[in-house]
Simulated scan of single mutants.
Amino acid sequence: MSDFRTAVLFGAVVTSGLGAGLFYAYACSVMPGLARSDDRSFVEAMREINVAILNGWFMLSFLGPLALIVLAAALEPRGGGRAALVWLAAAAAFQLAVLVITGVANVPLNNRLAAAGSAESATDLAAVRSAFESAWVRWNLIRALASTASFACVSWALFLSARTPIPDH
């Protein structure tokens, strides 16, 4: 396997693993922890998290996997590497699902949470939280599963690529 192709595949594994780990951490610790808080604390914490997460490190683990998976597929030899290509295609499909879920479900929920007034009454905060929490948690769980599936597929593709000799030209 060429060094560049190996590095790209390894980068795809690492970035997809980081993304899967992030969504997993929300599913098993962040959201259950916030679920124990009062409405004001929950809403304020999620608003702050949604602002803080928009940074380069997050974008690397959010947008990087799909770009690197597609590049890895383009670099994969067309001879004996067909098995790896199938797994890379599956990884790309799962990663695309993560982007779509985030764009059509989680981000709109985040935006509605941010748009709700900051000086809400306790009743308003309860309504804001109620409209946000269960839907956001459900969609996050789905994207955690999709990103974990992507991570597994790209990891298997790396394994297969390492075992497949590069065909002679």
Rank of each mutant, 00 (worst) to 15 (best):
S37C: 15
S155Y: 09
F10W: 09
A115C: 05
G11C: 05
A157S: 06
R138A: 14
I69F: 07
V51S: 13
R82D: 13
L71I: 11
S16R: 02
E120I: 10
V8I: 15
R36Q: 13
W87Q: 05
N106S: 04
G81N: 02
V8Q: 04
R47P: 04
E133H: 07
G81Q: 01
I69E: 12
I53N: 07
T123R: 13
V8Y: 10
D38W: 03
P32G: 03
G64W: 11
P167L: 01
F10S: 11
A89Q: 07
A131H: 06
F94M: 09
A27S: 13
E76C: 10
Y24I: 10
V51Q: 14
S130H: 13
V86C: 09
I142N: 04
L145N: 05
L160P: 00
V100I: 15
W139Y: 07
A119D: 11
A146K: 02
A90T: 05
L9Q: 09
R40K: 11
F10E: 04
L54I: 12
A105K: 06
G21V: 05
E133T: 01
R138F: 15
D39F: 08
E133C: 02
L85W: 07
V70E: 07
T102L: 04
R5I: 03
A91K: 02
G33F: 06
A35H: 09
S29H: 12
F94H: 06
A27Q: 07
A52M: 09
A144R: 01
F62G: 00
V30D: 06
D124N: 13
L63V: 11
G80N: 02
A114K: 07
I53P: 04
S118H: 10
F23Y: 14
L160H: 00
G79H: 06
A73G: 08
G19R: 02
I101T: 12
A127F: 06
A114H: 07
G117F: 13
F132Q: 02
S2L: 05
L54M: 14
V70I: 14
L18T: 08
R78W: 12
S150N: 01
F62S: 00
A146I: 01
V30Q: 04
F151C: 13
W156L: 15
A52S: 08
A72M: 05
T102K: 01
R163D: 09
V128T: 15
N110Q: 02
W136N: 01
D39S: 11
W136F: 11
S37N: 14
L18N: 08
R129V: 04
F42A: 02
W156H: 15
A122C: 00
I69N: 05
C153I: 04
A7P: 00
R112I: 02
V86T: 12
G80S: 03
R78Q: 12
E120H: 15
D39Q: 05
T123D: 14
F132Y: 15
M1G: 14
G33A: 04
C28P: 00
L9C: 07
G117K: 14
M59C: 12
A115D: 13
F159C: 11
T123M: 12
T164D: 08
V30P: 00
P65K: 03
S41T: 12
F4D: 06
R78A: 15
N50D: 12
V154R: 02
F94N: 01
A12E: 05
A116C: 10
Y24F: 15
M1E: 10
V137K: 06
G81K: 00
A73K: 00
L34Q: 03
A72F: 09
D168P: 10
S16G: 06
V100A: 14
E133A: 14
A126R: 05
